[in-house]
C-alpha cells in the first residue's frame, strides 16, 4: 500500500500523469470504491486489497479524461485486459495511459464479505493474468489463491445438456426480473458507445419496456455486442440489481470465440480484434 501511495505521489508530483484512477476505502473496511486522485494529498488515500473489485478501465473512455493528458490507473490483471482491448479498439491511446500494475491475489465476488475460498470471485479461480500483461510499474507480490469449485462452470454444463426449450425457460425465469436499468452496460468498461443501440429510437430495435420480450432482446444483444470483446471482469453481473447470471452469457461467447477462432479478448496488443477482422477459412459448414 505504501509502495502504491508513494508511486502515485511521485507520478502526480513529477507530472508524469495528470490524475491517478485508483481505489479508496468505502463505507466499511471490507469495501472500496473508485477514486480519482489529483494531488499528492489525494494519493495518500489510495488503497489496494482484496476488496478492489471495480474494473477502473471503465473510466478511461470518459470524455474528460480523453482531454486530460496521461492518465494513471491502478489495474489488476483482468483490468489490464480491458485496457488492452480498449487500445485494440482505438478507444484509448496507448501513450495516454500509465498502468500501475498490481500483482493480484484475487478479490471477493461481492463487496461486504470476508475474503475466503467461499467468496473469492469466480473470475479469479482460473486467472492466468495475476501478473498483468502490460504495465509501466508493477507492485505487490503473488501469494497462493484459495480454491473452490467453479459453480458457474457446472451450471454452464448443465445448461448445455438441456434442450433449447429448457434453456429458454431457464432464461425466461432469469430475464423476467430485469428492470432495464442498464447498470450492466454502464458498469462495463467495453460498453463505451456514446449512443447504445438500446437507446436508439428511430427505429427502436430493442424495446425499452422491461417485459419479457424487451428483456430477452436486450440481454441477447448486450451479450452479442460483447462477443469476442468481453474480458470477463464480471462487473456487469455484479452491478445487476436483479442478480441475473450475465456472466454465463459472456462466458459462453468467450468459449465460442476460443473454440472457433482460438481467440481470447484482451490478451495481446498484436492480435487484431475478433469481429473487426475475418479469415478466409472461417468455418461455414452451417451455410447451404
Amino acid at each position: 500500500m505504501n509502495e502504491l501511495r508513494a508511486k502515485a505521489k511521485e507520478l502526480l508530483t513529477n507530472g508524469t500523469v495528470k490524475v491517478v484512477i485508483g481505489y479508496i476505502e468505502s463505507t466499511t473496511p471490507d469495501r472500496t470504491k473508485p477514486f480519482i486522485a489529483r494531488t499528492a494529498e489525494d494519493a495518500e488515500k489510495l488503497v489496494f486489497n482484496k476488496y478492489c473489485v471495480n474494473n477502473l478501465a471503465l473510466y478511461l473512455t470518459r470524455k474528460e479524461f480523453r482531454r486530460t493528458g496521461v492518465v494513471g490507473i491502478v489495474a489488476k490483471g483482468c483490468d489490464v485486459k480491458a485496457i488492452v482491448q480498449l487500445i485494440q479498439e482505438n478507444q484509448v491511446n496507448k501513450d495516454d495511459v500509465y498502468i500501475i500494475g498490481m500483482n493480484c491475489n484475487g478479490v471477493v465476488s461481492e463487496l461486504g464479505q470476508d475474503f475466503s475460498a467461499e467468496t473469492i470471485a469466480t473470475k479469479c479461480l482460473n486467472c492466468s493474468v495475476r501478473t498483468p500483461l502490460l504495465y509501466h510499474t508493477l507492485l505487490g507480490t503473488l501469494e497462493d489463491l484459495p480454491k473452490r469449485e467453479d459453480k458457474n462452470f457446472v451450471l454452464m454444463q448443465k445448461l448445455d445438456a438441456m434442450s433449447a426449450g429448457e434453456r429458454w425457460d431457464f432464461w425466461e425465469d432469469e430475464f423476467e426480473r430485469c428492470v432495464k436499468c442498464y447498470a450492466c452496460r454502464q458498469a462495463c468498461p467495453l460498453c463505451y458507445c456514446e449512443r447504445c443501440i438500446a437507446d436508439k429510437t428511430v427505429p427502436r430495435w430493442i424495446e425499452s419496456s422491461a417485459h419479457t420480450r424487451g428483456n430477452f432482446s436486450w440481454n441477447i444483444i448486450r451479450a452479442f455486442h460483447l462477443a469476442g470483446r468481453c474480458i470477463g471482469c464480471n462487473e456487469c453481473e455484479r452491478a445487476c440489481p436483479a442478480e441475473i447470471p450475465l456472466s454465463l452469457l459472456n462466458r459462453k461467447m468467450g468459449m465460442v470465440a476460443k473454440k472457433e477462432f482460438d481467440f481470447v479478448a484482451g490478451m495481446g496488443l498484436d492480435t487484431p480484434t475478433l469481429v473487426g477482422t475475418y479469415n478466409l477459412n472461417d468455418n461455414e459448414d452451417f451455410i447451404k
Binding site: 470504491k33 473508485p34 477514486f35 480519482i36 471503465l58 473510466y59 428492470v179 436499468c181 442498464y182 447498470a183 452496460r185 454502464q186 458498469a187 452491478a239 440489481p241
Partner: peptide, 12 residues
C-alpha cells in the same frame, strides 16, 4: 467523478 450513471439506485 465516479458515478457511472447506471440508475441502479433509482430502480432499487
Amino acid at each position: 467523478d465516479i458515478c457511472v450513471g447506471c440508475g441502479q439506485c433509482a430502480f432499487a
